[in-house]
Amino acid sequence: MRSPRTRGRSGRPLSLLLALLCALRAKVCGASGQFELEILSMQNVNGELQNGNCCGGARNPGDRKCTRDECDTYFKVCLKEYQSRVTAGGPCSFGSGSTPVIGGNTFNLKASRGNDRNRIVLPFSFAWPRSYTLLVEAWDSSNDTVQPDSIIEKASHSGMINPSRQWQTLKQNTGVAHFEYQIRVTCDDYYYGFGCNKFCRPRDDFFGHYACDQNGNKTCMEGWMGPECNRAICRQGCSPKHGSCKLPGDCRCQYGWQGLYCDKCIPHPGCVHGICNEPWQCLCETNWGGQLCDKDLNYCGTHQPCLNGGTCSNTGPDKYQCSCPEGYSGPNCEIA
């Protein structure tokens, strides 16, 4: 077999650049994923090309098998939009790539799955459409700058595939050579959905506090709520009108309100015997008056200043008058 000629994957630097851009600016990249293909086995019993010639040398006159050299087999892949009637021409609109030389006439790579040499990765940054057309071609490398490479066999497949970690196996069982391969579509990290176009990256910072479920939905951490999980859940009972919080379990009062639940107004400074319904009010309790509710309107009842059976009459805020019984006098009937 001729010395292998290595063929790198098509578009790999571009895919790395796209992945970097997506990581830095995830909101700009609407989708991100990759179409993967792995060659599993190849069977070319006679070492022939599609045109019937030998990959190298002439045929044995007896059994008609190619004798001089085995094929240097590598694969090309073209991925494009779905076609009900597949045409070989036209651009590979979803991507293209190739393997290096991975074997001779016949080989089996099932035991070495995950080997990069027999895998082609086609990254995409558009919403995966699920339906596709795939062209797979086996080629013989001439290892010659003058002699062109020659095609051994080709296969085409049109179908639908959803993103999954599971592989789907396909076979080419007609023509001079048979080969088996597997395909799958996977979303990149933080991308979800059938189109790999739903973005969700767990975070716990100013912009949100959430994890992501298997469908890419945000699940808020304990103590947080809202579409972006950036609204803290305040202390139970915290007034929704007069209290708020920036951290879970907190209850910060608005100006003019106080209390554990921010449901108590702050009265006017200096208010003595008054209450409030709104901040800075001083609504006097019964029998109290004045701007600060510090004037006693029922001095008689509060202090009972009249002595010796005198009768007390309220005459104004903090004022009274005693009517003394016979034989007593003085402001409080204290003089006998």
Rank of each mutant, 00 (worst) to 15 (best):
residue 176 V to F: 10
residue 49 L to R: 03
residue 260 L to R: 09
residue 87 T to S: 09
residue 98 S to A: 03
residue 237 G to V: 02
residue 91 P to T: 08
residue 149 D to A: 14
residue 268 H to R: 10
residue 63 D to G: 12
residue 59 R to L: 15
residue 303 H to Q: 07
residue 242 H to N: 04
residue 276 C to S: 02
residue 152 I to N: 02
residue 280 W to G: 12
residue 13 P to A: 00
residue 144 D to G: 06
residue 271 C to G: 00
residue 29 C to R: 02
residue 296 D to A: 04
residue 80 K to M: 15
residue 64 R to C: 13
residue 83 Q to E: 15
residue 285 E to A: 01
residue 258 Q to R: 09
residue 204 D to H: 11
residue 252 R to T: 13
residue 178 H to R: 04
residue 74 Y to F: 14
residue 306 C to W: 01
residue 167 W to C: 01
residue 25 R to G: 03
residue 115 N to T: 13
residue 270 G to V: 09
residue 301 G to W: 02
residue 175 G to C: 12
residue 194 F to V: 14
residue 325 P to A: 05
residue 42 M to T: 03
residue 301 G to E: 04
residue 141 S to P: 09
residue 199 F to C: 06
residue 111 A to P: 09
residue 172 Q to P: 09
residue 159 G to R: 03
residue 177 A to T: 11
residue 67 T to A: 14
residue 193 G to C: 11
residue 273 H to N: 06
residue 304 Q to H: 08
residue 316 G to V: 14
residue 114 G to V: 05
residue 54 C to G: 06
residue 173 N to T: 14
residue 318 D to Y: 14
residue 313 S to C: 13
residue 315 T to S: 14
residue 145 T to A: 10
residue 146 V to I: 09
residue 148 P to H: 07
residue 246 K to Q: 10
residue 293 C to G: 02
residue 102 I to M: 06
residue 110 K to R: 09
residue 275 I to V: 01
residue 216 G to S: 02
residue 38 E to V: 13
residue 3 S to P: 15
residue 140 D to V: 07
residue 86 V to L: 04
residue 136 V to G: 00
residue 151 I to L: 15
residue 27 K to R: 08
residue 202 P to R: 07
residue 327 G to R: 09
residue 331 P to L: 14
residue 331 P to H: 10
residue 324 C to W: 03
residue 151 I to N: 05
residue 111 A to V: 10
residue 293 C to R: 02
residue 280 W to L: 08
residue 230 N to S: 13
residue 57 G to D: 10
residue 134 L to M: 02
residue 11 G to V: 15
residue 49 L to V: 04
residue 222 E to V: 12
residue 201 R to P: 11
residue 164 S to T: 10
residue 194 F to L: 10
residue 39 I to F: 15
residue 148 P to L: 11
residue 328 Y to H: 03
residue 52 G to W: 12
residue 284 C to R: 03
residue 125 S to I: 08
residue 192 Y to N: 03
residue 251 C to Y: 07
residue 186 T to S: 09
residue 250 D to N: 05
residue 277 N to K: 00
residue 134 L to V: 05
residue 180 E to G: 09
residue 251 C to R: 13
residue 197 N to T: 14
residue 304 Q to K: 04
residue 267 P to Q: 07
residue 162 N to T: 14
residue 202 P to L: 07
residue 302 T to P: 02
residue 77 V to E: 01
residue 273 H to D: 00
residue 252 R to M: 08
residue 117 R to S: 08
residue 191 Y to N: 02
residue 280 W to C: 07
residue 298 N to S: 00
residue 116 D to H: 13
residue 178 H to L: 04
residue 177 A to D: 01
residue 198 K to N: 11
residue 188 D to N: 08
residue 187 C to R: 10
residue 292 L to I: 03
residue 188 D to E: 04
residue 82 Y to F: 13
residue 69 D to G: 15
residue 44 N to D: 02
residue 151 I to V: 13
residue 305 P to A: 03
residue 77 V to A: 15
residue 193 G to A: 08
residue 310 G to E: 06
residue 205 D to V: 05
residue 280 W to S: 09
residue 85 R to H: 06
residue 212 C to Y: 04
residue 48 E to K: 06
residue 51 N to Y: 01
residue 114 G to S: 10
residue 265 C to S: 00
residue 218 K to Q: 14
residue 290 G to V: 02
residue 336 A to S: 15
residue 164 S to G: 12
residue 72 D to Y: 07
residue 34 Q to P: 00
residue 299 Y to D: 02
residue 189 D to A: 09
residue 268 H to Y: 10
residue 124 F to L: 02
residue 199 F to S: 07
residue 157 H to P: 01
residue 68 R to S: 07
residue 124 F to C: 01
residue 298 N to Y: 01
residue 274 G to R: 00
residue 157 H to D: 12
residue 229 C to S: 01
residue 306 C to S: 00
residue 182 Q to P: 00
residue 295 K to Q: 12
residue 208 G to A: 07
residue 189 D to N: 06
residue 189 D to V: 05
residue 78 C to Y: 05
residue 288 W to S: 00
residue 103 G to W: 09
residue 210 Y to D: 14
residue 84 S to A: 14
residue 98 S to T: 05
residue 10 S to T: 15
residue 36 E to D: 02
residue 285 E to G: 04
residue 214 Q to R: 08
residue 230 N to H: 12
residue 287 N to Y: 00
residue 217 N to K: 09
residue 249 G to D: 04
residue 209 H to R: 10
residue 322 C to Y: 00
residue 217 N to H: 14
residue 320 Y to C: 06
residue 233 I to V: 15
residue 134 L to W: 01
residue 212 C to R: 10
residue 236 Q to R: 13
residue 203 R to K: 05
residue 22 C to S: 06
residue 203 R to S: 11
residue 187 C to W: 01
residue 84 S to P: 13
residue 41 S to C: 02
residue 165 R to Q: 05
residue 322 C to G: 01
residue 4 P to Q: 15
residue 86 V to G: 11
residue 43 Q to R: 03
residue 153 E to Q: 04
residue 200 C to S: 03
residue 105 N to S: 10
residue 194 F to Y: 06
residue 82 Y to H: 15
residue 180 E to A: 14
residue 260 L to V: 06
residue 20 L to M: 15
residue 241 K to N: 06
residue 42 M to R: 04
residue 255 Y to S: 09
residue 182 Q to H: 13
residue 135 L to V: 01
residue 54 C to W: 06
residue 214 Q to L: 11
residue 32 S to L: 09
residue 45 V to G: 04
residue 81 E to G: 15
residue 228 E to Q: 11
residue 117 R to P: 13
residue 250 D to A: 06
residue 167 W to S: 00
residue 327 G to E: 07
residue 194 F to S: 11
residue 185 V to A: 03
residue 223 G to V: 10
residue 150 S to C: 07
residue 131 S to T: 00
residue 127 A to V: 08
residue 272 V to I: 15
residue 169 T to K: 02
residue 65 K to E: 15
residue 141 S to Y: 08
residue 157 H to Y: 12
residue 100 P to H: 08
residue 126 F to L: 03
residue 95 G to D: 06
residue 207 F to Y: 07
residue 163 P to A: 15
residue 27 K to Q: 10
residue 283 L to F: 03
residue 44 N to Y: 15
residue 9 R to L: 15
residue 178 H to D: 10
residue 51 N to T: 03
residue 245 C to Y: 11
